[in-house]
Computed example of a mutant assay.
Amino acid sequence: MTETIAKIKSLSEAYFSDIQAIRHHLHSHPELSFQEFETADFIEAELRKMGITDFERKAETGITFMLKGREDNGKVVAMRADIDALPIIEANEVSYKSQNEGVMHACGHDVHTSSLLGAVRILKELKDHYSGTVKVIFQPGEEKLPGGASVLIKEGILENPKPDRILGQHVMPLIPAGKVGFRKGMYMASADEIYFTVTGKGGHAAMPENTVDPVLITSHIIVALQQIISRNCSPKIPSVLSFGRVEALGATNVIPNEVKVEGTFRTYDEEWRAEAHVRMKRMAEGIAESMGAQCDFQVMKGYPHLKNHPEYTQANIEAAKAYMGDENVEEIDLWLAGEDFAFYSHHVDACFYRLGTRNEAKGITSGVHTPTFDIDESALKTGMGLFAWLTIAELNA
């Protein structure tokens, strides 16, 4: 074990400049979800440089292939990285700034992809240090429903062979570079989109008696929907219902005909999730009807909650401590963001952990999904090295 760790760390140092250059290229050429054609071509070109040619396309821009160890012990571990970017205008002034206007790797998927390419290079170099099979997955469309993971699963990514385990990592700007974070069990929330339109009867604001005011009715609905969380959900189940867009195109003296609302619902229990969808629709439509209006209430079902397999995650925690030292492995809290890696976690024992990227001394502190997000690139050494080591450790367990 000690010898393998030493070799991985040495290779991570040796490959760092190459992986950094890959990350810069990806960051400069971001592509939106399910449009990652140049990104996929670039990944394939990098694989060919490693002598890997037996890759397969899935969902048009997804890529998968196998790596074999010294012998077949029947074990299969999958490694996944997402490859898409976000519709954000980059504000960073760096040499690798996005060249695609309005598109940016603001969630670190360029880091995930380059780290996995580095890990593949290490695993190929050290194939005599492990047994079994590695299934590598470069996945499109994490940022957009229905989620690239769900598409790949439908196309059989978890079959022939079916992985025993699946491993994923994600940048975390709250954790310093050189550290990682793990959480066993429930980790990330399901994420559904809420859209509803209240239609009434508009008119002059000075004569409300001649209207069916959709603004007032919508306000009642928004307030009332919060009791779905506070009075129908067990306090033991974290849940969030938030509305971020309310559009009422009236004026100071004009009551509009309709109001459009958009929001999100997140939780950790699939039965409660389904029940909440029904309750919210029934309540919103009932309030509107009782006040003389109509409500068209739609739930766009998103990603399920993400659950980290307790035993597998604990094994990875111990392996990470062996690789990085106890002081560099943190326990992290629940996070109510959504992530389509969750789909895998409902089919295969999964572990999704956080890669620290923060460096306050360098001013690298911006959160993901912001125009100024960036990383301390020393995290790439941890990203590729730990990814490779956790896979080897599981295959040899």
Score class of each variant (00 low, 15 high):
196 F>D: 05
106 A>E: 00
50 M>N: 01
108 G>A: 06
336 L>M: 14
287 I>G: 06
387 F>N: 10
236 K>D: 14
9 K>T: 09
193 E>C: 05
80 R>G: 12
373 F>Y: 14
37 F>Q: 03
107 C>T: 00
303 Y>D: 03
336 L>I: 03
241 L>V: 06
241 L>H: 01
299 V>I: 15
62 G>Y: 01
357 T>N: 00
52 I>N: 00
8 I>C: 02
150 S>W: 04
273 R>Y: 06
338 G>F: 13
286 G>E: 09
326 D>T: 02
361 A>K: 12
330 E>Y: 15
167 L>N: 04
389 W>H: 12
114 S>D: 02
178 G>F: 09
84 D>P: 14
280 M>A: 08
384 M>R: 11
60 E>A: 15
190 S>K: 05
172 M>H: 01
252 T>P: 06
183 R>F: 02
354 R>M: 11
294 Q>N: 11
122 I>S: 11
156 G>P: 03
280 M>N: 02
247 E>S: 14
178 G>H: 09
47 L>F: 03
181 G>K: 07
85 A>M: 05
263 G>Y: 02
48 R>G: 04
121 R>V: 09
179 K>N: 05
179 K>G: 05
193 E>K: 14
232 N>Y: 13
176 P>H: 08
289 E>V: 15
89 I>R: 15
89 I>Y: 09
50 M>R: 06
3 E>N: 06
236 K>I: 15
318 E>L: 09
64 T>Q: 05
4 T>H: 10
197 T>G: 02
216 L>E: 05
185 G>R: 11
60 E>H: 15
85 A>V: 00
122 I>R: 07
377 E>T: 08
313 T>F: 00
114 S>M: 04
340 D>F: 15
335 W>L: 08
288 A>H: 04
29 H>F: 15
3 E>M: 03
